[in-house]
């Protein structure tokens, strides 16, 4: 096995880097720029039963080292994804993770049941943490009991491993993480965006039409590192770490905090080639730091 390969439930990754859900659509745009087989895995945008139109624009605002987004889970719906988006990805031999969302437990179950049957889907990422929709999403992710119940139900219908994507907008993320682990989650994905707001000085009104949005980018990295570190102390299942990864050192820092693989989000918008570039730099940086294999550093901060 290569020294940068990582193995997670359902995900045999040639390297630990995948694009984060919502930042990569269904792969076609970045597939024009480079060979997606370079990636450790591909995590596609959230899928819901019905098509969703998302929030009004403006949907993005900026802050030093970060951006706020309020897309609102816009997606073409389950049927379209099954017929058009996932078949397009068949030409790649890298694992596909599909992020799923819904208004109700039944919605989530329906999407999980259908998506997990698709032969080129390796895992599901259960989105209980989108801060930009009024119903569904985050309402499932802020209470341990509700999150565990949903995880259990989705696990009962899914043919592939389920990674639960956690929200940082909670008092105690460790409580939620342990609850979904207890309910059978195969892994965790953390963190989703932090709820924020920016105001336009000319109008005195929020810049985002949705008023609030999710903060991502370098600004949130220390929050993500702290939360992954805390969760790693209490949870044994694998963690896909994300939140402000821009540089190769960030990957190593997330893994030392306790992540088994990582996802890159906002950085794709700054440099569309960031994922393959980080993968290219990884082994040289490991050599400089005397790291033999990536698996040897996971959770080192806890030791």
């Amino acid at each position: 096995m290569s020294r940068i390969a990582v193995n997670l439930p359902g995900l045999h990754m040639k390297n630990p880097v995948m694009p984060a859900s919502g930042c990569f659509a269904f792969g076609q745009e970045y597939g024009k720029l480079y060979d997606l087989n370079r990636l450790g895995a591909i995590c596609v945008k959230a899928v819901t039963v019905e098509e969703r139109r998302g929030n009004p624009t403006p949907r993005v605002a900026e802050t030093p080292g970060g951006m706020l987004n309020a897309i609102g889970l816009q997606n073409p719906g389950l049927k379209h994804v099954l017929e058009h988006e996932l078949p397009w990805l068949e030409k790649y031999d890298t694992p596909i993770v599909v992020n799923i969302a819904g208004y109700s437990v039944e919605d989530y179950m329906e999407v999980a049941r259908e998506i997990s049957k698709v032969h080129n889907v390796s895992a599901i990422e259960l989105n209980i943490s989108c801060p930009n929709v009024k119903e569904g999403g985050i309402t499932f992710g802020t209470d341990a009991g509700t999150a565990a119940h949903l995880t259990d139900k989705v696990k009962s219908v899914s043919d592939v491993p389920v990674y639960v994507k956690l929200s940082p907008n909670v008092t105690d993320i460790v409580e939620i993480a342990t609850a979904v682990e207890g309910a059978g989650a195969d892994g965790l994905s953390m963190i989703n965006t932090l709820l924020g707001m920016r105001i336009d000085l000319k109008t005195g009104k929020p810049i985002l039409a949705n008023r609030t949005g999710g903060l991502s980018g370098a600004a949130i990295k220390p929050v993500a590192i702290r939360m992954i570190h805390d969760v790693r102390q209490k949870v044994d299942i694998p963690i896909i770490g994300m939140g402000g990864i821009y540089e190769v050192d960030d990957i190593l820092e997330f893994m030392m905090a306790g992540a088994n693989a990582v996802a890159v989000g906002t950085a794709n918008f700054i440099d569309p080639f960031v994922c393959p570039n980080l993968i290219d730099q990884l082994e040289d940086r490991m050599d400089e730091l005397g790291i033999e294999t990536l698996s040897s550093i996971v959770g080192r901060s806890s030791l």
């Binding site: 919502g22 930042c23 990569f24 659509a25 745009e29 970045y30 720029l33 945008k45 139109r53 998302g54 624009t57 403006p58 949907r59 993005v60 605002a61 951006m67 987004n69 897309i71 816009q74 794709n268 918008f269 569309p272």
Partner: peptide, 16 residues
């Protein structure tokens, strides 16, 4: 429109 990625991936700049 305010844009995120500029290449069609992030859905920040959609119109109906």
């Amino acid at each position: 429109e305010r844009m995120g990625c500029g290449v069609g991936a992030c859905l920040a700049c959609v119109c109906d």
